[in-house]
Amino acid sequence: MSGTFSARDLSMRFGGIRAVEGVTFDVQKGEVFSIIGPNGAGKTTIFNMISRIYTPSGGSLHFEGQDITRIAPHRIAGLGIARTFQNIELFSHATLLQNLLIGRHCHSHVGILSQLAFLPSVRRAEIEHRRRAEEVIEFLGLQRYRDQLIANLPYGVRKVVELGRALCTEPKLLLLDEPSSGLNVEETEEMGFWIQDIQKDLGITIIMVEHDMKLVSAVSDRVLALNQGRILSTGTSAEVQSDPEVIRAYIGGAPEPAKEDAA
């Protein structure tokens, strides 16, 4: 059960617009599951429902058998779900290390008075948090940026830092929102390697929304193609890409819907 995720008959309406309609899928443990589709297909909407920014209009979400359809967003991390953002949401006036340590926040359970007094138990916990953060820094090769402010780091590095901060929460399920957006070709390729390492070395289940088909083909075990809020096709990357419905949605025929998904 660990790390498994399922969506049942998920739907989302914004006023009269049906952004997502009757979407059902299951993600197995340790799998990289990608959601693709043209602009406005409903990818980000699904993502925001999984990470509980939006409450679905209908259907349900289950993580490790537990119903998470109506759980508060701040409780997601404690369950073992972490996410990154398309446009990078880091604590930009803090250092890289501080950002990773905040990722450890959900694993800390010491009382406020003992924290003020900096008791030995707090000290031990802090050392452990620091050790785990350093492991992540080493895993992603971020050593030389450790004490730099996020605001001073290049975009490509920040993208990796966000990945690192998500790993610091020790997730069982990682949600990646367009990991390649804003990256150049080499950086995108590198991002693909990180994703494969995370899957193989850490055994973390990954759900990813992505535009770059090269990256999708390189890392995905299964792909789900969406158009206008409905599932077009599910299968391996090659199967989905050769599906005539998918080709039609991408290359022409389907009218371009409203761009609610663009952000």
């Binding site: 701040h74 949401e89 803090a94 926040h105 959900c106 406020i112 924290q115 003020l116 929460t169």
Partner: peptide
């Protein structure tokens, strides 16, 4: 001391800097 040492103080700083990210760090 509160803002630099305690988990709640740091959670407050984090929430000030980036609400969205703070939610996914488990901060209410």
């Amino acid at each position: 001391l509160f803002f630099s040492r305690t988990r709640l103080g740091i959670a407050m700083q984090a929430s000030s800097q980036n609400q969205l990210a703070a939610y996914y760090m488990g901060i209410p």
